[in-house]
Design a protein around this nucleic acid. Structure first.
Lengths: 203, 203, 203, 203
DNA sequence: GATGAATGAGTCTTCATTCAT
DNA sequence: AATGAATGAAGACTCATTCAT
């Protein structure tokens, strides 16, 4: 075979990555063997190894791809933030839930696997840290907007609001993956209810 | 030979479990070998196997123990909830952070590992689900108290508040494990700021 | 099984080493697979690996053992050198030939394999270098004796004589392994003939 | 398409063979992969395989080429042998040493690799055997000349002298490859010293 | 009861060779 | 003729578990 085209190469990579994710998700990162992925990809061992240098590289690439997809999913919401934090969180949660309903790819499970792996893979940890840090910065930008628009008090800390919103979102991912009984609107409602306490300033 | 005493047995179990956690945490659940645990426990392979039927049982027991410890840690806060949700979340986060500073045992890392493993271990998943469900119920009880005391609006949904608070807490665990730059009081402040929006009802 | 005795351990090591040599010799160092050695040893893969950390370690140990055996074989000749260099070379060659007739272990082939491997294994190279250096020193000692006894001229260089004798011996190993038509006494005769030239000082 | 010219073909073969030797020498015969050779040759896999049927054929061809080169190197010395065996050995050793100083090609290392490989490759073994046998015959011819010229005693065995000289030469290759501290003149001196013993006939 | 040596199925990875383009 | 992507059998090594002593 003569030199393969760049598109073809990219397509093969995607093909392998998708095979990898469907395995990872079904069995976990470590219980998945390279052979599982090779079989699922429909390629030979050698071919898979010519695209990825090994299992760790495959995991890293898979997680990066996944973060990229998530990034694309959230970009519109970050570019033009909804009128209030509550609506924002609900929309993000809804996007995550929608993304998780795809066949053979549940973003929530993927996230849990990635976080766990990040504990022992420094490169993965840094990649993730960078991603969430950037996301939180965008969140802080949105908070600044909300302050200007009056959706947040004038003395609100954009930074702390961003941290809290990120927590709520990440927590939604965990809770929804494990309990499977949380809806985006539950979160929105809870957030709203928390904000209307008689002496909210005590909290 | 006289049977070993029950206390002795319990002590051995604890000894093994602690060895297991220190390994799990340092290397992850799957990268830890039984031999690592055996070495760390100071016992022989046969001895370890006489206390736990295998690696999966050890993982399950370790996670259960960990959840039990967490339960004990949170019990006081649940029995006599602080005056407001914000304070509550801050105290829980502080307890988690304190628990994570212990030598050779970081509750946050442990949680991430457990969640990931729960994806492929049904028994573990059910154990966890039960734990978080129970915790959320206690949270809803607290929310009911807060409603009565006026710390929450009269029309607040205790259930949704509980879900939201659990999300915030779980999300704190994730964010703090990965980014390591979130303080309990950041969360409390963010939650308070979120509640004081000019048109909070829009969220 | 409780702790194994030291003798038993040593016996197992020997058992594995002998299996390794019979394979190495029959198929070469690299064409021999660990599985070949494992099968030949009658042990399991795990057992073999518990005695030797890997194939390289096994090769190194095998060569070292082989050098040790050779050392033991030559020691008597070095301790009390025969009356002349010619007799010495003949006896060494005879010892090598005798050692090579053992079942499943041909010292000459072993030597060729080891030399080749030493090209790409620094540790092995150093081990060998040290061995031959020491042997050459002993040879120089013998040469000094021969000088004193008049079997060598008074102005002979013990160092160069040692180098030359070592060359003759090593070359005998090569030639005999490849051509299989050289006898120890051929070497002795050739050496004597070379020494009796009319104008030997011209060489 | 016009067939590639014969010169071109020959040039390609040489190109591949040289690439092969530079790899073989640096990493050993077995540690060198076809891919190493392909990369080093600058050709494609298919091209290399169109010139050589496989790795074994490449090794065989490489060794043959190497023996041919050696043959060419020694031919002048064999055609008109130097006045004495000592000078002859010194000149051969010097030629080998000179040949080994070439960049990326050390005849001594090459020889060790080839001998080792010959243990498990019958065709290679025969090729080598034939080469050394022929060389030894030429050596015997030279010995006959030396006898006639008085450089060797009248009762010298040309055959045994040839065997002994070959041993010295092969041994020089080994010793010099492993210890790297032997000079051609050391060998000449040692040989001369060995010949001047008071009672050389005892050796 | 305890020990730890032994087991062997299973993992990741490599690499000589082929053949569609 | 040439290319180089793809193949897949084979290799080195690991590790959860067992069981003879």
């Amino acid at each position: 075979m003569p030199k393969i085209s760049d598109e073809k190469r990219a397509a093969r990579r995607t093909q392998i990555l998708e095979a990898a994710w469907s395995c990872f998700q079904a069995q976990g990162l470590h219980a998945t063997t390279m052979d599982d992925i090779i079989k699922a990809s429909g390629l030979s061992a050698g071919a898979v190894y010519s695209y990825f240098s090994g299992k760790d590289a495959l995991i890293l690439a898979a997680v990066k791809t996944s973060l990229g997809d998530l990034q694309a999913l959230l970009e519109p919401l970050l570019r033009e933030p909804p009128p209030s934090p509550g609506v924002f969180v609900e929309r993000v949660a809804a996007a995550v839930a929608r993304f998780s309903a795809r066949d053979g790819y549940d973003l929530r499970r993927v996230a849990l696997l990635g976080w766990s792996e990040a504990q022992r893979n420094a490169q993965l940890r840094e990649t993730m840290r960078g991603f969430y840090l950037a996301f939180r910065d965008r969140l802080a930008d949105a908070a600044a907007l909300w302050k200007k628009a009056g959706a947040l008090g004038a003395d609100a800390s954009a930074r702390d609001v961003a941290k809290t919103l990120l927590s709520a979102i990440l927590g939604f991912v965990v809770q929804s993956a494990i309990m499977d009984d949380v809806e985006p609107k539950d979160l929105a409602r809870g957030l709203r209810d928390l904000g209307k306490g008689g002496n909210a300033d005590a909290g």
